[in-house]
Design a protein around this nucleic acid. Structure first.
Lengths: 124, 124
DNA sequence: CAGAATCCACATCGATACTG
DNA sequence: CAGTATCGATGTGGATTCTG
């Protein structure tokens, strides 16, 4: 076995659950998904863009900057060409992994019921 | 001792923590606070307005309607005059009480650190 | 590769006034 | 009491194009 980290599953967010929809959110729209992506170690900007292929670079940058400002993520730019930038969870950022997992569990257990209620036609 | 339920503490949300700010949110801006208010039983519209005195009736109504549509809260209107309406958590709504409490714990443990990072001047 | 710049659509939230 | 009706501010997210 080699020491290369596994790459991110391109489809890890095809289940609409924890961060996109649902009543339990971690930060804004993409924050929870980004934190999930960083769970196993630092990731490059373009690595994040694989599972998060529906986010525009502008919004991804904004969200990462917010996470950095809040002390949840560190940004490391390596002075190379072509440029390489890595984002990594801080210890504070890691404290969100548990609530995030709990949100996933809630969704798995209860989100279908909520969706069903939402789609039920109103009685009027 | 009587059987009247205790009224809501008007200042129960003066600590800015779980629903207003912080990276862990339950639903939109007021949802978490409303669910907290309903924890001990049904409450009237005007009862909710006491601790939630910064929400306008329009937004409170919108939020309650959303909660109702999602099957998290029931709305019961009594045919009296003056009108009386009570909102109550459903079983599904009650499943959010634990994540909500967990969010409060996270805030108590870590929010100060986040706030400090946010207020730290950027290195530039 | 990792973004910056610009423009824009939409949803959320709020202020204010009014009503069955 | 428990809302409804308008109007307006704000902000979040997206589409597109361009660059060191």
């Amino acid at each position: 076995m080699t020491d290369m980290r596994t790459s991110l599953d391109p489809d890890m967010f095809d289940a609409a659950c924890p961060s996109g929809d649902g009543p339990l959110r971690v930060g804004d729209k993409w924050t929870g998904m980004i934190i999930s992506c960083l769970e196993d170690g630092p990731r490059r900007f373009s690595e994040l863009q694989v599972p998060l292929r529906r986010v525009t670079p502008k919004v991804l940058t904004e969200t990462l900057r917010r996470l950095e400002r809040d002390g949840l993520v560190t940004r490391t730019a390596y002075p190379e060409v072509p440029p390489r930038v890595e984002y990594e969870l801080t210890d504070l950022g890691r404290t969100l992994l548990q609530p995030l997992a709990a949100a996933r569990v809630w969704c798995a257990d209860h989100l279908p019921q909520l969706i069903e209620a939402r789609n039920r036609p109103t009685a009027d």
